[in-house]
Structures are given as structure tokens and as C-alpha cells.
Amino acid sequence: MNHAQSGQETPPGTPPGRRHGGWIWFWLLLAALAGAAAGYWAASTAGEETAAARYRQLKSQFELVTAQNHHDYQALQGRLDTLQGQMLVEESTRKSLEAALQSTQAELGRARDQLAFFDRLLPPGPNGSVSIRALDFEPRGPTLLYKVLLMRNAPGTEPFAGRMQFVAKGSMGGKAVTLTLEPAAAPAAEEAATDVSDAEGAASEQTPLALQFEQFQRSEGMLDLPEGFEAASVTLNVLEGKTLRVSRTVNLPAGE
């Protein structure tokens, strides 16, 4: 086949080996470009995978920190609610105590006013009249426990000096009798008297039933009950010398 029949013409003067070398360089250049493209694609893919892994790591850390912060917030909120509840309880308790204190102070003021009113009604004596504010008896086997609170209406220039006398009415051997009760002889049953306003040292020289005070005196002690005697009532007489200043009778429950 000649060149005219194949439809291809070879430029005159071109050697055949040079024509084949041009094609080789073309394919080498094409292969280099393909390799570069493949390398770029591989590098891009590796970079994307690294970025995705880093993103997942940061996202996991963010979610962990967020969960921890949420947990801490819930704990702090619970603590805050507890403290607020305690504050409300303490505030309520404080208000209740303040109300109780105000009520007690008001009652104390009314009691003082009433006491002052009744004190003005009592007739004053030469050294101030004496009144029995409280008197109580409690049987203790063969003895009788007494508790007495005495008060002066208007203190005089000198302390009140006198003595107590306990007179019991009851029955003994089927007969009605009246007896003057004496302090119990046992040391543990002796009367303990306290004078808040008196000078110290005078009590040691007094008998168990002696009195000496300026404003008030509380006395407590034991009285002997004769064997076989059943007391029905006991009368306390407060004497100044031989003069009866005040008296009060207390009925004892039957059978005691």
C-alpha cells in the first residue's frame, strides 16, 4: 500500500524515528499528569479523613464538657433550692419566735399591771404588809412537803422578821384533832429557804421556820406527821412576834 492509498502523507524530510519519539514523550507527559492528579486526590482524601477525625474528636470533647457542665449546673441548682428552703424555714421559725416573744412580753406586762393593781389594794402595814403568793403541800410518807412564796406589798425601812406556823386539822384514832406541825428532824428533809434580797449570813442563825426578807422569800421543807394522823387540811400562819400577819388554808385530798 502506498501513501496515496492510505490517505496519510508524511511530510517530506521527517525521519521515521523522530515521529515515534514524539508519541513516547506525549504518553510520558500524560502519565505524569495522571500520577500528579492521583497524588493530589490521595492527599486531598487523606486530609479530609484527618479533618473528619479531628472534628469527631472535638465534637466528642464538646459533648463531654457540655454534659459535665449540665450535671454541675443541676447539682448547684439543687443545692440552691435546698438552701432557699432552709432559709424559708429559718425565716418562718424566726418569725414564730418573735411572735411568741412579743406575746410573752405582752402577757408579762399585763401580769405586772395586775400585780401592781392588787398590790395597791392591799392595806399597807407599818413595815409593809405580807401576802402569801403561793402555797402547796405534798404528802411524802410520814412527812409533808411544803412550798411557800411570800411577798411584801410595800417594803418598809427594815426587813420583815417573823416565822411560819403550820396547823393541821384531821383525825387520829377516830377523833378530830388539831396539831401544830414541826419541821422534820432528818437532815435531808430540813427546810431550805432562799431570800433574794436579804444580806448573806443571817440564815444560819434562823430556825427552819423563821422568816427575814425585804421583798419576797421562797421557802421549802418537810413537816413531820404524827403516826396514825390523817391530815385533812393545813393552815399556814405568818407571825410577826405574836401578831398574825397573814394566813391561808389548803385542803388536802382525801386518803392522803
Results as ranks from 00 to 15, higher is better:
residue 87 M to K: 12
residue 21 G to W: 09
residue 45 T to S: 11
residue 198 D to I: 15
residue 139 P to T: 02
residue 207 T to L: 15
residue 107 E to R: 01
residue 206 Q to H: 14
residue 104 T to G: 08
residue 96 S to W: 07
residue 156 G to P: 01
residue 134 A to T: 12
residue 31 A to K: 07
residue 124 P to T: 14
residue 157 T to R: 14
residue 195 D to R: 06
residue 172 M to T: 01
residue 22 G to N: 11
residue 175 K to R: 14
residue 118 F to G: 04
residue 219 S to N: 09
residue 16 P to L: 13
residue 94 R to Q: 04
residue 51 A to V: 02
residue 129 S to I: 08
residue 65 V to D: 00
residue 192 A to F: 07
residue 184 A to F: 00
residue 213 F to H: 00
residue 61 Q to T: 09
residue 247 S to V: 04
residue 217 Q to C: 03
residue 66 T to H: 10
residue 213 F to L: 03
residue 178 T to E: 15
residue 115 L to D: 07
residue 217 Q to Y: 01
residue 253 P to F: 01
residue 11 P to R: 10
residue 255 G to D: 03
residue 190 E to I: 15
residue 37 A to Q: 13
residue 68 Q to F: 06
residue 245 R to M: 13
residue 119 D to K: 11
residue 202 A to T: 02
residue 248 R to P: 00
residue 130 V to A: 07
residue 247 S to Q: 12
residue 99 A to Y: 05
residue 27 W to M: 04
residue 87 M to T: 07
residue 248 R to Y: 00
residue 249 T to C: 05
residue 112 R to D: 04
residue 249 T to W: 03
residue 149 L to C: 04
residue 193 A to Q: 01
residue 94 R to D: 01
residue 213 F to V: 02
residue 177 V to G: 04
residue 29 L to W: 05
residue 18 R to V: 14
residue 52 A to S: 13
residue 175 K to D: 04
residue 237 N to E: 12
residue 238 V to C: 00
residue 161 A to P: 00
residue 105 Q to F: 05
residue 75 A to D: 07
residue 51 A to P: 03
residue 194 T to A: 03
residue 47 G to Y: 06
residue 129 S to K: 05
residue 221 G to Q: 01
residue 6 S to P: 06
residue 217 Q to K: 05
residue 46 A to E: 08
residue 88 L to G: 11
residue 19 R to M: 12
residue 129 S to T: 15
residue 69 N to K: 11
residue 129 S to E: 14
residue 235 T to P: 04
residue 65 V to T: 12
residue 58 L to E: 15
residue 73 Y to A: 15
residue 62 F to G: 13
residue 67 A to T: 10
residue 127 N to Y: 02
residue 25 W to T: 14
residue 219 S to T: 14
residue 103 S to F: 03
residue 11 P to D: 12
residue 63 E to I: 10
residue 47 G to C: 08
residue 146 Y to P: 02
residue 8 Q to T: 04
residue 126 P to T: 09
residue 4 A to K: 15
residue 140 R to L: 13
residue 154 A to C: 09
residue 34 A to M: 10
residue 161 A to T: 04
residue 126 P to W: 07
residue 129 S to H: 13
residue 113 D to K: 01
residue 215 Q to S: 07
residue 78 G to F: 02
residue 63 E to M: 10
residue 256 E to Q: 14
residue 196 V to L: 11
residue 23 W to L: 12
residue 105 Q to P: 01
residue 226 P to V: 15
residue 143 T to Q: 09
residue 256 E to D: 08
residue 43 A to M: 04
residue 201 G to M: 03
residue 144 L to S: 00
residue 247 S to N: 10
residue 185 A to D: 08
residue 76 L to K: 08
residue 59 K to F: 09
residue 136 D to P: 02
residue 29 L to E: 07
residue 186 A to E: 06
residue 228 G to A: 03
residue 206 Q to G: 05
residue 151 M to E: 15
residue 114 Q to T: 11
residue 222 M to G: 02
residue 147 K to L: 08
